[in-house]
Amino acid sequence: MTSSLAKAAGRTAAKRRSGSWEPFTVVSVIGVALFMLVCLIPFWVIVSGSFTDEQTLAGKGYSLIPQPFSTAAYKLIFTGPTLVSAYVASIVITVAGTVLALSITSGLSWVIARRLPYVSRPLAIFAYIPMLFSGGLVPLYLLVTQYLKLQNSYFAVILPLLVAPFLVFIQVSAFRQLPEEILDSARVDGAGELQIFFRIGLPLSKPILAVVGLFYAVHYWNEWFTALLFMSDIHKYPLPLLLQNLISNVSFSQMLPTAAAQSTPVYQLRLALTVVTIGPILLAYPFAQRYFVKGITLGATKG
């Protein structure tokens, strides 16, 4: 299988699509369109609801047209003094976290994927065990706050989530599909193992790097729990934590006074918060996606 892959390299996927409209294609288009609809309608309902007046939302439920139109929830979100710093924190955490995580994960995955005797398999098991066994919250908390002293540092959010075993395995299985011949020919040319990794392995694996990178980015973008644990300075709260606080700022228990004096548009707020959090991801997604469409060994064996 791997050898045929090498031969195929350089041909674009577009070729596959030169056929006529077969029934299966039509079925696919309809199938995807239906699923898109199932995903789009709630999305639209969320966006539309976030602009609908709270009274109407609570009274009639959600509608497809924001009527009467209201921006109360967005005003509430955007007048918060810390929103800008929250976006900054989230961007820093996401960018730094993704770059670090992707580098480290790639290194580990490459070593596992090379099937080195006495190294790869133990490493794979070593990486897999943390997916199942966890020491729990308290030791992690002590580790970060008392030994690493990372309170109020962005690294407190980045480091504990640095390598996700799940993504290691995704990447390993992708690395293993790289044509061995290309690597061998490089060895014949006298390239060292590290050179092969950096000059051939990584460039050939752009699509999987994009996929894994995207998953890391989403993780970091959405992460609020580690931030909750280790950040006490509100000016360093990442966006999801800030929003999480807003969303749960409700009269928590019957024992409590009816909380804040101002009436918050709860329905509207929840929807607006969803829009604010996922908006940037949806905007960034097409850029990462560019790589998915490209062939995996594109450009490796040109000429």
Partner: peptide, 26 residues
Amino acid sequence: SLWLGLLAVPAVAFFLVFSYAPMAGL
């Protein structure tokens, strides 16, 4: 192989500190 192994060192360190050490809590 040894050179190659270097690539895994950061990840191994990560797992030791953030995953294995706290497992004592079990």
